[in-house]
Design a protein around this nucleic acid. Structure first.
Length: 321
RNA sequence: GCCGAGAUAGCUCAGUCGGUAGAGCAACGGACUGAAAAUCCGUGUGUCCCUGGUUCGAAUCCUGGUCUCGGCA
């Protein structure tokens, strides 16, 4: 569209790209704002739940005031009953990054959704059909109910023994997905994986900063944030979503915080139990995030309050990038 | 002070006839390719309050202590 597009050609974004990741509640948002203002960045959220409109408190979105200070992408882009997934994220994140780079600014990917970040940097295999084929999902879900998982798993073993060896029989979600891919396209999940080409767009200059802190510190922060969410109106927000017609069954409403609030509203848990469960599930989520990040050897880790150290690192990186 | 009950995993507790211990919750480790804040897999982490004794062998039986909780004063 204009000359600055030289920053981006078909396969590669050549200008600097920053990534800021870390477990929930570690303090990514505060640092992302500081980095964005210092280094002329726009934030691209890497968060599977902040994409949903009306879900503000439970997803700990940056506030409207914060979003006035710094441009944020991929927040509030779909309604809670709309499908969103890793492939949509890759598409949207690449588009945002290309536009930001072309404008001479720096994309700052910030978030904690491990799969999304991996999909962005390493790519996904493509499925021609691309969409969600609801009829196949319904068909498989019914067969699961009628025939049981053993039958479906035996079928997977027959058509894709490699995936059957990798997927545990109790992992219903992956079992159904593997069968769905085959039914939809006639090719197995493992065939897809083997024929995968790599990311659609490469980032020539990417610095990945990880924010971390001691386990106990993180858990204390999670406890504080849990109480703050309650005081800040988490229950009322979930109630509002229900009144808008969003079912507790929706993937978005199964997010941490919302499913807890829904149980409270249904009278299953009292306030104290809801807080306890919410804090516990958030701790477990943080642990799963750490597991995910620990495999990524390109992350440079910094203590959560070492803003000066991170800023210095970004400065030297930009000088050479 | 007296009487009674108890002390075992981070917590609540079980532990048969004496054979060095296990359940729930919590915790911890891991997987992850279009639901991912989802889904799933794995792990017991212990001075059995202390002490001395009986015994081939003690969480278990006995002695003495310490502490906790009831009740009575």
């Amino acid at each position: 569209m204009n000359s600055t597009l030289s920053a981006v050609n078909n396969q590669t974004i050549n200008t600097p790209v920053l990534v800021l990741l870390g477990p929930t509640a570690v303090g990514k948002t505060a640092l992302s704002l500081a980095l964005a203002e210092l280094f002329a960045c726009e934030v691209v959220s890497v968060d599977s739940m902040q994409v949903y409109r009306f879900m503000d408190i439970g997803t700990a979105k940056p506030t409207h005031r914060e979003r006035e200070r710094v441009v944020h992408h991929l927040i509030d882009i779909v309604d809670p009953d709309e499908q969103y997934n890793a492939a949509f994220f890759v598409r949207d994140a690449l588009a945002a990054a290309a536009a930001i780079s072309a404008a001479g600014r720096i994309p700052l990917f910030t978030g904690g959704t491990g799969l999304y970040l991996k999909a962005l940097t390493e790519g996904l295999f493509t499925v021609e059909d691309a969409g969600e084929d609801e009829s196949i999902r319904t068909y498989l879900a019914e067969r699961l109910k009628k025939e049981g998982r053993e039958m479906l798993f035996a079928e997977l073993r027959a058509i894709d023994p490699e995936s059957a060896a990798r997927i545990h029989i109790n992992d219903t979600q992956r079992l159904l997905r593997a069968l769905e891919i085959y039914k939809m396209t006639g090719k197995s999940w493992s065939e897809r994986l083997h024929s995968q080409q790599g990311p659609a767009v490469r980032f020539a200059e990417m610095l990945q900063i990880g924010l971390t802190c001691g386990r106990q510190t993180l858990y204390d922060r999670i406890d504080m944030r849990t109480h703050a969410m309650f005081a800040g109106g988490l229950i009322e927000e979930a109630e509002k979503l229900q009144k808008m017609g969003y079912s507790p069954e929706l993937p978005s409403m199964q997010a941490i915080g919302y499913r807890h609030a829904n149980n409270f509203l249904a009278g299953i848990w009292d306030r104290e139990e809801t807080i306890r469960q919410l804090a516990r599930d958030t701790r477990r989520y943080a642990k799963r995030q750490m597991t995910w990040f620990s495999r990524n050897k390109t992350i440079e880790w910094y203590a959560r309050d070492d803003h000066q150290g991170i800023i210095r690192r970004v400065e030297t990186w930009l000088a050479t990038a």
